[in-house]
Design a protein around this nucleic acid. Structure first.
Lengths: 112, 112
DNA sequence: TTGTTATATATCGTGGTTCAAGGTATAATT
DNA sequence: AATTATACCTTGAACCACGATATATAACAA
């Protein structure tokens, strides 16, 4: 009974989160803001995407959380684990493969 | 009572189908084969994706179907309408925007 | 003081895409 | 005779991503 593979274009939010956390420790709200900023508002991941992704990644052992209070507000900082780094590599390769595939079709010059 | 927007990474199968049909008239089975071939087997769209996409596109007026019997087998050839061409332009622009956004995050060099 | 905006976390219900699997039928190959 | 390739199609479910909602503090305006 069918377990199906994830759709081939998914996992991008996860990829973005992991990639940013590879640079430095960040917290959820910051990640959302940063993605909006860097993509010029093209990609806007809401809290309903960011937080579940973060929690899932942490549960999978790809992230480690650290609580910190700044200005009376509690932030949860996440950093990559080695497992997370490996996962990032994999997702990076997936993205490259798939986007290259899409480009191949788009540039395809009517070959027989 | 939310109707939600489609996820930001979707619509790629539709894009690929429209792009190939912009070259020339093709039928469903052929499209599936062609996408597999051009992408080096990276993207494999099954019939469960191809045919519903084709039907939806036709219902939306983006494609025009034409029945043709070859070697005793019936094929349904699809060609782009002007509406389909416009839709292709839009999806093309969407893909460019989004993939550029993803790349921006991936190449992001730790800017503050 | 009251209201709104920004910061910061979290969950929930649901909607829509994509998926594998199944179903029909003819032609070609083994 | 059986399997593979061609060719169409539908269905049920999985899953991600979405908007909405909730809570709480700080900053700023009116």
């Amino acid at each position: 009974m069918g377990q199906s593979n994830p759709p081939f274009m998914t996992g991008v939010p996860e990829l973005l989160v992991l990639r940013l956390l590879a640079e430095r420790e960040m917290y959820g709200y910051e990640l959302a803001r940063r993605i909006r900023l860097v993509t010029d508002d093209v990609i806007r991941l809401g809290e309903g995407v960011i937080y579940p992704a973060l929690h899932g990644l942490e549960a999978a052992g790809a992230l480690k959380a650290r609580r910190k209070t700044v200005n009376g507000r509690t932030r949860v900082y996440y950093r990559l684990t080695s497992k997370g780094r490996r996962r990032l590599e994999r997702l990076l390769a997936d993205w490259e493969r798939v986007s290259t595939g899409v480009e191949a079709v788009l540039e395809e010059p009517a070959g027989a």
